[in-house]
């Protein structure tokens, strides 16, 4: 029954659990940014990555018994809101010009 005690060790969440979860969600968001061609979904993946970073901030704040991380997470949220507003305005602009929101249509800046 060694696996029961092992499971018991990992059952209660510690800081490492939160960090691993946050890393996993960050990597999922990263894959989304690389894979998806729809600009709106790329922005959603970026929101996902920002959220995972917030989770890291808050987990470390709790671990250190301090609240500076909460303030940083608050700022990240404010910046994410600003970013979403501008990004979606750009998406609308692109849709007007190209009749589509695929990032494959936007390669002029690459060359």
């Amino acid at each position: 029954m060694a696996w029961v005690s092992t499971l018991g060790t990992y059952w209660e969440p510690t800081l490492a659990h939160f960090l691993l979860l946050s890393a996993a969600v960050f990597c999922i968001g990263l894959v989304g940014v690389m894979v998806r061609r729809n600009a709106i979904i790329v922005f959603m993946s970026i929101e996902l990555m920002l959220n995972s970073v917030n989770l890291t901030f808050i987990a470390f704040a709790r671990y250190r018994f301090e609240m500076d991380g909460h303030v940083f997470a608050f700022f990240v949220m404010a910046v994410a809101a600003a970013e979403a507003a501008v990004a979606l305005a750009i998406v609308i602009h692109v849709f007007r010009h190209k009749r589509g929101v695929s990032v494959d249509d936007l390669q002029e800046l690459k060359y």
Binding site: L21, A24, I28, G29, V31, V35, R36, I41, S45, L48
Partner: peptide, 9 residues
């Protein structure tokens, strides 16, 4: 969170 994140992408 993991499942819904995967669903998003």
């Amino acid at each position: 969170a993991l499942a819904t994140s995967c669903a998003v992408i």
